[in-house]
């Protein structure tokens, strides 16, 4: 019985000295990955906001960054609000939302897509562990 108790003690000590700190260190590394993704998303949004356009080069860089982190994926949406002339009843919802696929199609072979006014950009990051971050706003 003594021997079993001592083995359990040793096992617990090993667990406390190696596995638990290693788990914490791994979590810290994951947090830093998330933080880096957030910074990229914020920078990308501000680039769009400043240029008032979506540049193919910037988008390629942003996409390349996420290709290095397979645990995260992103969604980019551009919502354009149409202001209807006075007296006209809008048919349907006066907002058009373009998702990443459509934007990539539009960007194919072009240097940039001009966005102009009344446009809202939203960048969302999704992690496999349920992590979610969103940023963006008016351009």
């Amino acid at each position: 019985m003594d021997c079993i108790g001592r083995m359990a003690e040793i096992f617990l000590c090993i667990l406390c000295l190696t596995l638990i700190p290693a788990g914490n260190a791994l979590k810290t590394c994951q947090n830093r990955e998330k933080n880096a993704a957030e910074i990229q998303a914020e920078r990308f949004y501000w680039q769009i906001r400043q240029e008032k356009s979506l540049k193919a080069e910037d988008y390629a860089q942003f996409k390349k960054f996420f290709s290095q982190f397979p645990d995260y994926r992103f969604e980019l949406t551009v919502a354009r609000r149409y202001v209807m002339p006075a007296g006209r009843t809008p048919k349907g919802f006066p907002v058009k939302i373009m998702y990443r696929v459509e934007l990539e199609e539009k960007l194919y072979g072009k240097e940039e897509i001009f966005l102009g006014g009344n446009v809202f950009v939203n960048i969302s990051i999704y992690g496999k562990d349920g992590y979610f971050y969103t940023c963006g706003g008016e351009v």
């Binding site: 260190a25 810290t28 590394c29 830093r32 880096a36 957030e38 914020e42 501000w46």
Partner: peptide, 12 residues
């Protein structure tokens, strides 16, 4: 190795 606590935030 000791993991460093580090956080960055960006504002424009």
């Amino acid at each position: 190795a000791v993991p460093k606590r580090e956080y960055s935030c960006y504002f424009s």
